[in-house]
């Protein structure tokens, strides 16, 4: 998730405390609280699944890149850093496959990109 969930939750905590105090204009309070509620719902949705998504995706991309290894540290920040490294390498591999006209490799990469996008879909997504 971008921005990452922990700093967003910290920001929302501060915002809720601010809005618990008197003197906040009602339109601003309504806007802050309704947006905070929607963000908390998104955070709740990704809480349980995020580590699984990243491990699954890292495994799939490693296979495409011909790398071995597994994620040993399951903290989200570590999984995300490895995911960033792998997806950057996947972009390079995709561009190289296009330049080489390697259709089979392009199809394999596209299949993983579609799968990755589906894994990350939110229940409230407009598309």
């Amino acid at each position: 998730m971008n921005p990452p969930v922990p700093p967003v939750l910290a920001e929302l905590a501060g915002l809720l405390m601010k809005n618990a105090m008197p003197g906040v204009p009602e339109p601003e309070r309504a806007s802050d609280l309704s947006l905070s509620a929607m963000l908390l719902m998104v955070a709740g949705e990704v809480w349980d699944r995020q580590a699984h998504i990243l491990v699954e995706e890292n495994r799939a991309v490693r296979a495409l890149l011909g790398e071995t290894g597994e994620d040993a540290d399951l903290r989200l920040s570590v999984l995300q850093a490895e995911n960033d490294r792998l997806r950057a390498a996947l972009i390079e591999a995709h561009a190289a496959a296009e330049a080489a006209g390697d259709q089979a490799r392009q199809d394999a990469i596209w299949a993983e990109l579609v799968a990755a996008t589906e894994r990350r879909k939110l229940s409230t997504a407009p598309v």
């Binding site: 971008n2 921005p3 967003v8 947006l35 905070s36 963000l39 998104v42 598309v127």
Partner: peptide, 14 residues
């Protein structure tokens, strides 16, 4: 929060 919501809601949708 208005800066967070578009990113969370729309990056994957985009």
């Amino acid at each position: 929060p208005i800066m967070i919501y578009p990113a969370w809601w729309l990056i994957n949708a985009q």
